[in-house]
Amino acid sequence: MARNIFNQPPKDDMETAAPSPAPPKSPKLPGSVGGLRDSLREITANSIRDIDTDRIDVDGLRDRLVLEDSSIDDLAESIRKHGQQVPIMVRPSDQPDRYRIIYGRRRLAAIRKVGGTVKAIVRTLDDNASLIAQGQENNLRLDPSFIEKSMFIKEMQESGYKPNVIQDALGLTRQGVSNHRVVVEQLPEELVLLIGPAHGVGRRQWGDLAALAQKVQLVDIAKEALASLPDDTPSSERFQAVYIAGTNKARGAVKQATRGRKTVVKAENGRPVATVAIDGKSIAIKIIRKDNPEFGQWIEQRAEATLRRLFDQWQDERGSGS
């Protein structure tokens, strides 16, 4: 089970926010000074502050492939009408009077469209705890798609986060993390960004697309297939368009290899002598009797001996000696 390092907020911005987690208790100082310090820490950790949005840095690892989309506009309109119901979470920055976002990137983006301050819980968390909080909150509020989780896992691993932190951030087992990583390693990042999050498209479908990427130039195929679609086409439909185009291209390549090529061998006077047909399985030499009846009869009488002689010549040229 993943560690739940904070009280999870409800899944909808229209709901009331859950109280923020209580801070870890520190040793009390003797007398009223220690009690006052503990009280101030508890108030600070559990209070919701109004912070100017330009004082918050949106850094850290990507957990979404698309942030500025139509859903941000919808969320901004909801906040404009009803106010911000669920706070974001930030942590103090190394720079004075600035903060780094932990979770709530969509809400922050929406409020920047609306204008004004953002309600935020301020917590002092290290990188590992911040990452776990970010992953857990996103899993509850808007479940990331398979490929978004895969890309997030890839970035966490490349950034040096330990396996147990990655598992806790997404609530996955070690095998679950491996299943996501295996697929995303076979996909060009450019292809994933062209398609988008594709909610509802699971591991098997992305795995099939990854297999296609090993056979054909899928990025070029995707660009061509997506160019004909409207800009607001849902990413799940974009995935299907790319998959169908890639499958058709792969089938065409197989058919072409199966058909192979056929060459007409001609004499010096231009008269056809024979045809040579080559495909992935065989090489066939065909002599049409009606065009060269005497030559056809001559070859028929000498075919076996001629082929053996050619085979011996091939062995001599490759130096096998046998």
Rank of each mutant, 00 (worst) to 15 (best):
Q301K: 13
R259L: 13
E268N: 04
L29W: 05
R174A: 13
F239K: 04
E190K: 14
E268Y: 02
I72L: 01
N269A: 05
V118N: 01
D168V: 12
F295Y: 10
I287K: 09
V118L: 03
R302E: 13
V118E: 02
P234I: 07
G104P: 09
A274C: 15
I51L: 13
S150G: 14
N164G: 01
L194V: 09
I221G: 09
R105D: 02
Y243C: 06
A120P: 03
D59W: 01
D126R: 03
Y99M: 00
I72C: 00
A211M: 06
R251V: 12
V66A: 10
G207T: 06
E15A: 15
P197N: 11
Q85P: 01
V114T: 02
Q175F: 06
A45D: 06
H180I: 04
K149C: 12
P9N: 15
I283N: 10
Y103K: 00
K113D: 05
Q134R: 14
I48H: 04
R3T: 13
R64P: 00
A222Y: 11
R91I: 05
V122D: 03
E189W: 01
V254W: 08
G116R: 05
F311D: 08
E224R: 14
R37N: 04
P234F: 04
V219Y: 07
I283Y: 12
L226H: 11
R64I: 00
E294F: 02
N128K: 11
N179Y: 03
I221E: 09
I111D: 00
S70M: 00
G246Q: 15
T173G: 14
A22N: 08
D279P: 15
R271V: 13
G280S: 15
S39D: 04
L40T: 12
D73R: 08
P234C: 03
S20N: 11
L67S: 01
P27W: 04
D143M: 09
A22R: 10
L36N: 08
D52M: 04
P197W: 05
P87N: 07
A257H: 08
L226E: 14
K25Q: 10
N4D: 14
Q217V: 04
G116T: 03
D208T: 05
D52N: 01
K154L: 14
I48P: 02
K281A: 15
Q186N: 11
S71Y: 02
A17W: 10
H180T: 05
R105E: 11
A211V: 08
V216D: 03
F152Y: 15
R174Q: 10
K223Y: 07
Q136R: 14
M151G: 09
L212H: 02
D13P: 11
V58K: 05
N139A: 13
L170I: 11
R318Y: 02
P272R: 14
D57P: 01
Q186P: 01
